[in-house]
Amino acid sequence: MARRRPEPVQVVKERRDAALAALVGGVPYIRRLGVQFDRRGDELTAVLPFADRLIGNPVLPALHGGAIAAFLEISAIVELAWSGLWHEIESGRISMDDLRAGRLPKLPKTIDLTTDFLRSGLPRDAYARARVNRSGRRYASVHVEAWQDNRDRPFAQATGHFLMPLSAEETDG
């Protein structure tokens, strides 16, 4: 049996980038905070570009704790949604047409989030990566770490629990 030729790299990249853009672009607060996502294969890094409006303590100056907590929460939710969406995209269950029409699964809902502030946030860009520690049909637990200049010196971390959206079959049934 002849092996199927792999798809051209541009097609694969275009589909994955479109999926990520559809996931993130629809949320006003993500845009308002200015959070962007860097994708390498299925790995996501959230980026919070520095802006004066993110300052909480103008004397130091330091990033606002609330902005940091929001950044971590966004990173966790997007990672969780992305890890589910990835399989839907790669298997073809969600097509480019679905993405263009905004037909995406709903985002998980935060049940609780515990944020540890390890150092003050410097007035420069911040990065975060989240890890899904457990993802069940209803509940998920996600850990996220944020750093600035040095990956080994996180300035904040958070653990949260999330309620997964009902799948299409569950909603229909």
Partner: peptide, 12 residues
């Protein structure tokens, strides 16, 4: 409203 915005309000 996004949970992050609620967090910012509560933290402040």
């Amino acid at each position: 409203i996004h949970g992050g915005a609620v967090s910012a309000l509560i933290d402040t």
